[in-house]
């Protein structure tokens, strides 16, 4: 009982201390996060004009690279998160892409029909949930991102095309996954990791970190000709 009380009070103090400490956060990152969380009103109707007309319209309205305010966006949205959550958001360098491509219509391919609305509206205004029965031809936000990015990257032979080229994997919280007794020793810890990551363990056995053997002239009491390393004399401790 006493033990428990001591433990919990210690825990409370820790939490309080943590919450009081001011952690520095990057302001633009926070802004991007906030923006990614927004839900905007769905735009049903768009103006179906062809690409050249659209370019002319943009020039006429005087929209240029200077209007690109944000360095980057986080491509993320509650619309996507509701369905699947395997990967972290992608940091999309908007300004850089705009400068490289120098053609807003490449991505901002249509505009809302309502003339009072912004010329280059954001993706998630038109592309929202997938498989909208009222707009079957309209692809969802996730597909819009992927189609736009990968197709262009493939065509231009430039830019990442694999999943982890853009995304960080969402590593699941291991708090409940790892089951270790208090005071576990190194072997128990490794065994626990291998319980799920057996493949990683096998791969490890093939790496130089495990197999390296060779001279170790700088190790005390060893000379050049002494073969050393994990593959020979050093302790392979699991």
């Amino acid at each position: 009982m006493i033990k428990k009380i001591i433990f919990y009070s210690g825990f409370m103090i820790l939490v309080a201390a943590l919450s009081m400490a001011q952690v520095w956060k990057a302001p633009d990152q926070e802004k991007a996060k906030e923006r990614a969380k927004e839900r905007v009103k769905f735009i049903k109707d768009y103006k179906d004009e062809d690409n050249i007309l659209r370019k002319i319209a943009l020039i006429e309205k005087g929209i240029s690279l200077d209007d690109v305010k944000n360095n980057y966006f986080l491509l993320d949205s509650p619309i996507i998160k509701e369905r699947e959550d395997h990967y972290g958001p992608v940091r999309f360098a908007h300004k850089r892409h705009a400068a490289l491509i120098n053609d807003c219509t490449e991505c901002h391919h249509y505009r809302p029909k309502d003339e009072s609305m912004l010329e280059t509206t954001r993706c998630s205004a038109c592309h929202q949930d997938s498989f909208n029965a009222d707009h079957p031809e309209r692809i969802g936000l996730k597909a819009a991102f992927h189609q736009q990015c990968t197709e262009c990257h493939q065509e231009e032979q430039n830019g990442p095309v694999t999943c982890t080229g853009c995304h960080l994997k969402n590593v699941p919280d291991h708090k409940d996954l790892v089951k270790l007794a208090d005071n576990s020793d190194a072997f128990q810890v490794t065994a626990e990791c291998l319980r799920c990551h057996d493949q990683a363990g096998e791969d490890m056995l093939k790496t130089a970190h495990w197999n390296w053997r060779g001279p170790s002239p700088y190790t005390v009491k060893h000379r050049k000709d002494v073969q050393h390393g994990k593959g020979t004399t050093a302790l392979n401790n699991y």
């Binding site: 699947e84 997938s130 498989f131 079957p136 992927h146 189609q147």
Partner: peptide, 14 residues
């Protein structure tokens, strides 16, 4: 499968 497809190669509907 339709939900996860990143490029909506699978369109679900009537």
């Amino acid at each position: 499968c339709a939900t996860i497809c990143p490029v909506e190669a699978i369109t679900f509907g009537k």
